[in-house]
């Protein structure tokens, strides 16, 4: 796309000529003024400020008062044009205010997320433990003791969570999870499992071919969006192949609707071959 390239050139030119950063002193000042505004809102108006007020925790209120003092000092430094000192004070004020927020922390927000994290990890543990049982059977290894121990750890984690000790619950759960993971690793190390392709019926194979045909269509679509060059001759050839593919596909769909899946499969195979040709023409390496 020529326009895009020219644009990039222009951008480059603009970049060289007018770097967006203003002279150092000016940047600091502008950024600093933004920061002053930000820190003020953070301490006085933000949801964080409200949280500190509502919590009514003396420690949090004290931290906020300190933040306020630091902010006032920063204002003084700014008036004296001591910009670096002002910036340092604003940073400290922000940190103090963050501390205040933490001290006034709404534990529910965090607890809710940790609860979800726990549940997800528990689901993973269950899936892995089930897999461990099956792999043990497959390998003729007696894992009964291990599985019993894991079940015990799981129960303990769940009861800790119910009693509200989420932190400890997670530690116990993670212990079981790591052990399961490690045991699977030991049993499966070096294995290659083959998922063979066997169709139960011609109908199933037809569905497979339909998916394969869709896939190649979609790939063409993706690649046409990624291509930067424009080539009319190529575009025409691709369109011709796609048109043939479309025709074969509608024939295939007709055959399938008449329950003649074998014909449908053959036609879809032909259709997909056309699409693969189109893909290769557009410069994509389709193996096979």
């Amino acid at each position: 796309m020529d326009t895009r390239r020219t644009l990039l050139c222009l951008l480059g030119a603009a970049w060289v000529l007018f770097p967006p950063a203003l002279p150092a002193q000016e940047v600091d000042r502008a950024a600093l003024l933004l920061q002053v505004d930000f820190v003020h809102k953070l301490i006085e108006e933000s949801s964080a400020a409200k949280q500190v007020e509502e919590a009514g925790i003396p420690e949090a209120a004290e931290l906020r008062a300190t933040a306020r003092e630091l902010y006032e000092q920063a204002q003084q430094e700014l008036k004296a044009e001591a910009l670096p000192a002002a910036k340092a004070l604003l940073d400290s004020a922000t940190k103090k205010m963050f501390e205040a927020v933490r001290a006034a922390g709404k534990d529910e927000v965090v607890a809710e997320k940790r609860g979800v994290d726990f549940d997800n990890r528990l689901a993973s543990l269950d899936a892995l433990v089930k897999a461990l049982g099956e792999i043990s059977k497959e390998k003729g290894k007696d894992s009964a003791a291990l599985l019993a121990q894991l079940a015990e750890q799981r129960a303990s984690a769940v009861s800790l969570r119910t009693s509200g000790d989420l932190g400890k619950a997670r530690t116990v759960l993670d212990g079981a999870y790591q052990q399961t993971r490690q045991s699977i690793e030991e049993l499966r190390r070096g294995d290659t499992l083959v998922r063979s392709l066997n169709f139960a019926s011609k109908k199933e194979e037809y569905a497979y071919e339909l998916d394969r045909n869709d896939t190649h269509r979609m790939l063409l679509e993706v690649l046409s969006k990624e291509r930067s060059g424009e080539d009319k001759g190529l575009e025409e050839m691709v369109q011709k192949l796609v048109a043939t593919a479309n025709e074969k596909r509608s024939q295939a769909e007709h055959e399938a609707s008449m329950q003649r899946f074998e014909n449908g499969i053959a036609l879809l195979e032909e259709a997909t071959t056309q699409l693969i040709r189109a893909l290769r023409l557009s410069g994509t390496y389709i193996p096979g």
């Binding site: 502008a30 933004l34 920061q35 505004d37 930000f38 809102k41 953070l42 108006e45 933000s46 949801s47 964080a48 400020a49 949280q51 205010m97 927020v101 709404k106 927000v109």
Partner: peptide, 13 residues
């Protein structure tokens, strides 16, 4: 959400 980000005031010239 009710908890608006405190940084919500930052970054706008």
């Amino acid at each position: 959400p009710a908890n608006q980000p405190p940084a919500a005031n930052q970054g706008r010239p």
